[in-house]
């Protein structure tokens, strides 16, 4: 059997496959637990994108692109920011100020909870998209 170069990194590949789910899980934990512990959308986005970057480093960029195509990343970058802005516009339409989450639910505290949740989710999605897309663009220029 022909041994192609990436097969030399068998140990790294196996360990990476074991680690990636935990990295993603930790990213999601940081995202949704940010109200209670340290963390939030920005950190979660960076951690979540680290999983894909690790995959790209070990398995090669072509395979990571097959998992998550650059077109999806561009959509993510825009969707996160739109989610944030959309929350602001919804608060205006419901009669509050921009990003005044109190009007999002009958109970102001619930409204704040929903508002922070959506806004942090928007930040996380945008940061994930931008970070992975930065890595794609830097790493894919190597052959030039």
């Amino acid at each position: 059997m022909k041994l192609y170069p990436r097969q030399r990194h068998r140990v790294l590949q196996v360990v990476t496959k074991l680690i990636i789910p935990f990295v993603m899980m930790f990213g999601l934990y940081v995202q949704f637990h940010g109200d209670y512990g340290p963390g939030g959308g920005f950190q979660a986005g960076v951690i979540f994108s680290t999983a894909f970057i690790l995959h790209g480093l070990i398995f090669g960029l072509q395979r990571t692109r097959a998992v998550l195509s650059p077109a999806i990343l561009r959509i993510m970058m825009c969707a996160g920011l739109l989610l944030y802005c959309g929350t602001g516009i919804v608060t205006i339409l419901l009669g509050g100020n921009l990003l005044d989450y109190n009007v999002l639910a009958h109970d102001p505290l619930h409204g704040q909870h929903w508002g922070i949740f959506t806004v942090e989710l928007g930040v996380g999605i945008t940061v994930t998209g931008v970070m992975i897309s930065l890595f794609y663009n830097f790493a894919s220029r190597r052959s030039d």
Partner: peptide, 22 residues
């Protein structure tokens, strides 16, 4: 609401700044 005051400040009191950062 959130026990983490940093999150309250970042996402609610200063939500407009965080929008700019995003």
């Amino acid at each position: 609401g959130p026990p983490n005051i940093v999150t309250s400040v970042l996402a609610s009191y200063r939500g407009y700044d965080t929008l700019g950062e995003t």
